[in-house]
Design a protein around this nucleic acid. Sequence first.
DNA 1: AAACATTTGTGATATGATGTACAAGGGTGA
DNA 2: TCACCCTTGTACATCATATCACAAATGTTT
Lengths: 205, 205
Amino acid sequence: MKQNKVPKATLQRYPIYLKALRKLHHMGVERIMSRELGNFVDIESTTIRRDFSFIGSLGKQGYGYDVASLIEVFNGQLGVNFDEKLILVGAGNLGRALMNYNRWNHVVGEIVCAFDTDNDKIGSLSEVPVYHLRDLKQYLPEGCRIAILTVSGNAQETVDLLIESGIVGIVNFTHEHIQAPKGVIIRTVDVVSTIQELIFQVNNF
Amino acid sequence: MKQNKVPKATLQRYPIYLKALRKLHHMGVERIMSRELGNFVDIESTTIRRDFSFIGSLGKQGYGYDVASLIEVFNGQLGVNFDEKLILVGAGNLGRALMNYNRWNHVVGEIVCAFDTDNDKIGSLSEVPVYHLRDLKQYLPEGCRIAILTVSGNAQETVDLLIESGIVGIVNFTHEHIQAPKGVIIRTVDVVSTIQELIFQVNNF
DNA sequence: AAACATTTGTGATATGATGTACAAGGGTGA
DNA sequence: TCACCCTTGTACATCATATCACAAATGTTT
């Protein structure tokens, strides 16, 4: 990384670029210009160029960017190893749906195992073993940093336990607001709030 | 609405406030000050006061805000009727999980019906009827504005159809990037991208 | 090989969001 | 009723992000 001060806003766009580049690569596109990519993902070309510049000089003037090597750089420099080990905490409806939705294999990694407090859920659902949450420390995969939280209660308590066990990133699918110390990143994906926001926006025009 | 230029960032925080206020109300809290609310949701009190001020003068100096009437105002002014009619497009794993996850009843509204193109999925799964997508216009509920998209393919095509039928807000659970004309709001909730972003962030420190 | 046409990468600038400071005004208690 | 205390709402300052404009560098054409 050229500088270690990549803006938050930029960081949020990297996954979008990566997604688009993979698709373009799959479509057989070998080189692309910031303008084209911009049209593709609805982001100004100049924003794209600046975002890229935080990683380094990835393009060539008068030519554009090489798709394949750009993907390479993104993966390498940003630390996407395709076998990121993920755990799922909460094996209810949503949790099980996410287990089966294995779209992320070979893209980010895989859900190694799941945890729940309900004894009925312990066992093996759909290839992914489910352990009791009390055995977290025992079964937490080596090097696992990221947890997907889909519990239906005691969210904060569960989060505290996860952090204590070394988790540093949590995707929170709960409707609860949870707190975490600096250094731990929580990203809340709340369907209810998302829909509310949509309602606010469509009413605001 | 006092002004019709509510900043995007503010609009994104309204659901957070509403969520917190409901919880506080449920806990029996009758009045709250911006400082307290700020601690509760991890947002600076001054940001909260400014956000509120876009709607009007909702508080009293030296006193704070009345929780019940604040919720009232949010619901009313921002147009949350608790019976927003939602449709679900795509009745696969994730779609079915969302149908069963009826946490949004009496909070935003309800999923009235679902659509899919797979004949095996047509029928009644879990109280919510599933129709064939080709019958969208026939079964689209009166006044329905928002769709939840969980299809596994042909995302853009499906979105075009939805927009043509009058949908103005879409929660996109697909990994696809979709485009829409001005006036239609797309909010993408992509688990894969979210996890990637987390990886980028934790690697960046 | 030289001139031209492109497109990158980045200073400079504009826009948007957040944080500070405080005047204005309602609540509270004597 | 009066004086004090507290919290709101907002003008102003700061910080972050997006956009503009263009020099530098490369591919392409003649």
